[in-house]
Amino acid sequence: MLLKDEVQMLRRVPLFSGVEPGKLKLLAFTSDRVSYSVGETLFHQGDIGDAAYVVLDGKADILVESSTGPIKVAEVERNSIVGEIAILCDVSRTATVTATTGVEALRIRKDHFLKLLTDFPEITIQIMRVLADRLSHTTSELTEARSRVRQLE
C-alpha cells in the first residue's frame, strides 16, 4: 500500500477527517507501517504505552484482564484509532489488543503523536471529540448497568 492510499484511508478515520491531506501525508510518512496476522497482539495490558495505532484494515479485539480471565470490552474496526489513552495520560496500557483478522496498521510513535497534537489543533479537537464521545457512551452504559443492578436488588 502506498502513501497516497494511506492518506485516503486516514481521511476516512473520523479523528483525522478534518485535517488537510498534506498533513495526513506527513503523518503517514512519519509513522511505521506494520502488519499483524490473526492472533498477534498489538500491545499488552500493563506495558508502557509508546505508540498509538491507526487500524487501516482488519479487526482486533480489545481485551481486559479480570479475575475470571480476559474479557472482551470492545472491537476495533478499520479506520479507528487505538492505544491513544496510554500516550495521552502517560499510564500503562489499560487493555490488550489482539488481531482477529489480518491487520494493517500505522504505528504512530508517542513523541510524534504528541508533536502532531501541538502542531495541528484540529487533530486535538478531534481527539477531544472522540474521547468525549466515548465518555458519554461509557456514562450511558454505566447508568444502564447501575439501573439494571438496582432492578436486580
Binding site: 498534506g22 501525508k25 510518512f29 512519519t30 513523541d111 510524534h112
Partner: peptide, 18 residues
Amino acid sequence: NAVELFADLPPDHPFFQQ
C-alpha cells in the same frame, strides 16, 4: 515528496528523524 512533506516544518522538528 520530501519537500512537500517537510517544507513547512521547522528544522529541529522530530519528524525529520524519519
